[in-house]
Design a protein around this nucleic acid. Structure first.
Length: 583
DNA sequence: CTTAGGG
DNA sequence: CCCTAAG
């Protein structure tokens, strides 16, 4: 679980999001910092402190304490071991890990805790490992790559624990895992520990793949140099492809995955926005490679998937992910919220700010508004005009309503800008204001269907069309939901063609020729920003069909009530002429 | 991005 | 109407 990061230390950090520019964070520190790893049964006391920019610990305020209290309350019993490890996640100046557990022969774990600090600002895997040399005080530590994953998994486990109030079973995640030998129940446990959520899937194979991928999903598998073999991660390539050495494979099952990936996508401390975005890229790809097509998944496949999945693929993935308690960004985040606190839903934006790691966000600067929105893939690129009602109907999922609304708001915003550009209308756009309470009123006016108090210019052409539109089909309220295969749903916004539009289209075809759709759109359809060139083409196709089909004889179609714009025969005739002329 | 064609 | 493969 490399996103929706909600590890203990992060939670605490988030709880004190009152750093007014001052780089400070609140973290808890263990009063038993020096305790040995085996003393996990010892009573441990935790004190909430803020870490100032210089590393000093400052006692937390009462508010801060209260912020985290209930969280800790719920989980502290489960964290006898977790907290033990957390202490090494919380970097402390000059503290070196004495934990023998943390000093594996490879120095894998010993080094990483230092790196955490510097990782805050380190960069993307493709750019190579960040060379924040100043922080690595670990002589003879193993390759940098191997450190991070170890931490990641550790954090991942913490996340899982906090998110799902689950007791992570580290023994299952530590060391080599032979998923083959696990029973369904054990697989479920492992799954739980890996993803922080339950699963009811009984399919052993599926579980194994999920878990395997889950453990390796922190980066795009295609960029790794590891492959799966017998449910173990094996480094492929020159350096000992499948050493039976064992020592090399012990920890690596968890720790090797990120060879090239570098740092953990999980948030540490104050992360620059850029970092989040980069992480998200990884998240997306990992999501993609993680699920779907489970059946055709093979070991090598991890490294094989190079082609960027199509949008539809992603959508379907989203659906699937939802169905099985998905790990997709939003779903996962939301499920986490649901379990964490109902307040989350009430104040989504505060959460974004205070629990930055819990809500995967990106900074969106559409219209210069600079809104921080939950990261979602924009499925719609064209005309995202769905109003709230249809939206809600469409997404009965656990996807956070707030997230959806914000998403749509931004999309609408974006589309509006497109429209303006199309029409050459320039106007300043008011900053998006996202209402905290979720209220949606169906707005009939199509060009005003954004549900946000956003000031946006209205094209005057709309009024023109309203006049011309005999059928009164001006609003695209009629966004129908069409079922797709795979059981998913897809929005289909329909906007009936008016006679005026058809006439313009015919005229455009006559003038510019069929096929020059972009020309026609630009010159004859400048007013109708919602008609794309593809729409024109489709409509023309339909017109052709209609004109040729109906000309021989006006057959029984008449009885049918053609409420939707019965195209006048004259136009049809014209269409036929044009078609023959061009053919 | 545009066009063409399938769904 | 939507999606995608080709220019």
């Amino acid at each position: 679980m490399c996103f929706g990061g909600f590890s203990m230390e992060e939670t605490v950090v988030g709880g004190s999001g009152n750093d007014g520019g001052e780089k400070s964070a609140t973290e808890k520190s263990s009063s038993a910092l020096s305790s040995s790893p085996k003393s996990s049964s010892d009573p441990v006391m935790y004190k909430l402190v803020r870490v100032e920019g210089d590393g000093r610990f400052v006692p937390a305020t009462d508010d801060e304490v209260m912020e985290v209290e209930e969280l800790l309350e719920d989980v502290k019993n489960d964290f006898s071991t977790d907290l033990e490890q957390t202490k090494d996640i919380i970097p402390k100046e000059g503290t070196s890990a004495h934990d023998p557990k943390l000093e594996s022969p490879e120095g894998v774990l010993g080094g990483h805790c230092k790196e955490v600090e510097a990782e805050k600002s380190s960069s993307c895997p493709e750019e190579g490992r960040s060379s924040d040399e100043n922080h690595v005080n670990q002589p003879g530590s193993a390759g940098q790559c191997s450190k991070t994953p170890a931490r990641r998994n550790k954090s991942g486990k913490l996340n899982a624990a906090v998110l799902g109030r689950l007791k992570p079973d580290f023994s299952k995640l530590r060391g080599e895992i032979c998923l083959d030998n696990l029973s369904i129940g054990e697989l479920h446990e492992t799954f739980k520990a890996t993803f922080g959520r339950e699963t009811s899937v009984k399919d052993k194979q599926w579980l194994k793949r999920r878990i395997a991928m889950g453990l390796s999903n922190s980066c795009d598998a295609s960029t790794t140099t590891f492959i799966f073999k017998d449910n173990k991660l094996i480094k492929k390539g020159k350096e000992g492809s499948s050493k039976s050495d064992g020592s090399e494979l012990k920890e690596p099952v968890l720790a090797t995955v990120n060879d090239k990936c570098g740092k953990s996508p999980i948030g540490n401390g104050d992360k620059p926005e850029g970092h989040q975005i980069l992480s998200l890229k990884k998240l997306r790809s990992s999501n993609i490679s993680e699920s779907k097509n489970e059946d055709s998944f093979t070991e090598e496949r991890v490294a094989k998937r190079l082609r960027k999945p199509t949008r539809r693929y992603i959508e379907e993935l989203e659906v699937e992910s939802r169905e099985c308690g998905g790990r997709l960004v939003l779903s996962a985040k939301n499920s986490g919220h649901a379990q964490l606190s109902p307040r989350s839903l009430v104040r989504p934006f505060q959460n974004i700010q205070s629990d930055r790691k819990a809500v995967v966000t990106r900074l969106d600067s559409l219209g210069g508004s600079g809104v921080q929105i939950p990261y979602v893939c924009r499925i719609r690129r064209g005309r995202p005009r769905e109003n709230c009602m249809t939206l809600m109907e469409f997404h009965p999922s656990r996807m956070s309503m707030a997230a959806k609304l914000v998403k749509e708001a931004v999309e609408v915003h974006a589309s509006r800008r497109d429209d303006e550009t199309d029409n050459g209308i320039k106007d300043s756009i008011a900053p998006i204001t996202v209402p905290m309470p979720i209220r949606c009123n169906p707005v009939p006016e199509p060009e005003n269907d954004q549900m946000w108090p956003v000031t946006i210019p209205v094209e005057q052409e709309q009024d023109v069309e309203k006049v011309l539109d005999s059928s009164g089909e001006t609003c695209d309220n009629n966004v129908t939901i069409v079922p797709t295969t795979k059981g998913g749903m897809r929005r289909k916004h329909h906007r009936a063609w008016t006679i005026a539009e058809v006439m313009k289209l015919v005229e455009g075809v006559a003038r510019y020729g069929a096929g020059r759709w972009s020309e026609i759109k630009r010159l004859a359809f400048a007013s109708y920003s919602y008609r794309t060139s593809v729409d024109l083409k489709d409509k023309w196709r339909n017109l052709l069909r209609a004109s040729f089909a109906r000309s021989p004889a006006d057959k029984g179609m008449n009885s049918r009530k053609n409420a939707a714009t019965p195209i006048p025969a004259s136009i049809l005739l014209r269409v036929r002429e044009l078609a023959e002329k061009q053919a």
